[in-house]
């Protein structure tokens, strides 16, 4: 998966991104309300959100569900992948729908992914499947305590 190059965003785009990382209103015409607070029009706001989603400046826009409060599980896991097998193992790991994110990182444990399943049992099954498919030991790092999570970053 490629990284989008830092895109040329104008000042209004940045203000929109920052405003949309706050609480989006639950009112009949929420885009109108946000547009008014930014000094733009509803039409312009909707067009810019659409464009930024298409350009992957925004990865999504909508409710962010806390899946653990809905019965699901997220578990961070890692593999130490031999360099010559890296692309093969990437393909095998990414093939599982339970793998939500996967990053290459600089460390002996060089592949870090998040398993996301609708029920707790799914994690164990996905872990066993990855071990069987790759012959590598899965290091699982389930969270024990959450101190802070907020993906807000100022644009």
């Amino acid at each position: 998966m490629s990284r989008p190059a830092p895109t040329s965003l104008d000042e209004l785009d940045r203000r929109i991104i920052n405003a949309l990382q706050g609480g989006f209103p639950i009112v009949d015409e929420p885009y109108w309300e946000v547009a008014a607070s930014l000094g733009t029009t509803e039409t312009e706001l909707l067009a810019r959100i659409q464009r930024m989603l298409e350009a992957r400046v925004l990865t999504r826009f909508g409710p962010m569900f806390q899946i653990e409060r809905l019965g699901g599980r997220f578990v961070l896991a890692a593999l130490a992948v031999p360099e010559e097998r890296f692309s093969d193992v990437t393909e095998r790991v990414n093939a599982l729908p339970e793998v939500a994110h996967n990053y290459r990182r600089e460390h002996a444990l060089n592949m870090w992914f998040v398993l996301a399943t609708e029920t707790p049992d799914g994690i164990e099954a996905a872990t066993r499947r990855i071990e069987a498919d790759t012959g590598l030991k899965v290091f699982a790092f389930p969270k024990l305590q959450e101190f802070f999570v907020d993906m807000r970053l100022k644009a």
Partner: peptide
């Protein structure tokens, strides 16, 4: 609207909003 508000209140929804691609906004 009431169900979304209730899910926000209970923490089942963290927030309603945009997730920027951090690379695209320069991080």
């Amino acid at each position: 609207k009431a169900r979304l508000a209730a899910m926000l209140e209970s923490g089942r929804i963290r927030r309603i909003g945009a997730v920027p691609n951090h690379y695209a906004i320069g991080y």
